[in-house]
């Protein structure tokens, strides 16, 4: 099912109050703005979450969130980008920085560790970009991570697992494979 209404994520949250696995297809040219809208929709609805960033370093993405009025205190960050660029990670209590050789099991552990930082009852996990992670990880591992995301929703450990992906990659086989496992595919850009 693909939804194209003007506030698709907001509607999906209301439609799946017991939780859901969602994929949001963002326009590549406005990807960051669309991502910010999606995360803001989740936090404005009262959810706390884990944001997995393969695209940008922690400081950059958290500054963008702050500038757009997102309550970053309700988000625990996992920075996978910095180490991949051979940059040094700065320690921050709000962020877990993955090592450059971290595998999917390390990412799963980081997600569970991040849950401990969240107080709220409603939780989400947001993966910023399926295509960016595949620059560094085999497709099989990305699919394995998607299975983990689906599992934690089905077991009611979190409410929403959200995969971000650029529209241009929607027809790639690995994206379609993951899309088959999610409850709804949404069009980003309008929150």
């Amino acid at each position: 099912m693909t939804s194209k209404d003007t506030s698709s994520l907001k509607r999906a949250i209301e439609a799946h109050k017991d939780g859901a696995v969602l994929m949001v297809e963002h326009p590549a040219s406005t990807y960051i703005d669309s991502t910010i809208l999606a995360v803001k929709t989740l936090t404005d609805a009262g959810y706390e979450g884990v944001y997995i960033s393969y695209q940008r370093p922690y400081k950059n993405i958290s500054d963008r969130f702050k500038a757009e009025g997102i309550a970053v205190d309700s988000i625990a960050f996992i920075d996978a980008a910095t180490a991949l660029a051979d940059q040094k990670n700065e320690k921050n209590p709000k962020c877990i920085c993955l090592a450059s050789d971290a595998d999917i099991d390390d990412l799963v552990r980081a997600v569970y560790t991040s849950f401990e930082k969240l107080d709220g009852k409603g939780k989400f996990v947001y993966m910023d970009s399926l295509s960016t992670i595949t620059l560094y990880k085999p497709l099989s591992e990305v699919v394995r991570f998607s299975e983990f995301m689906v599992r934690i929703v089905r077991k009611h450990e979190i409410h929403y697992a959200v995969f971000g992906v650029a529209e241009d990659f929607a027809q790639k086989n690995f994206v379609k494979n993951i899309a088959l496992r999610v409850d709804e595919v949404l069009q980003g850009g309008n929150g």
């Binding site: 963002h26 590549a28 040219s29 406005t30 990807y31 960051i32 695209q55 940008r56 970009s129 295509s131 960016t132 620059l135 650029a166 529209e167 241009d168 990659f169």
Partner: peptide, 15 residues
């Protein structure tokens, strides 16, 4: 290449 452009575009703040 459209896919490369899409991958790089999404890393930028604006196109």
């Amino acid at each position: 290449d459209k896919e490369v452009k899409a991958e790089i575009s999404q890393l930028c703040d604006k196109v």
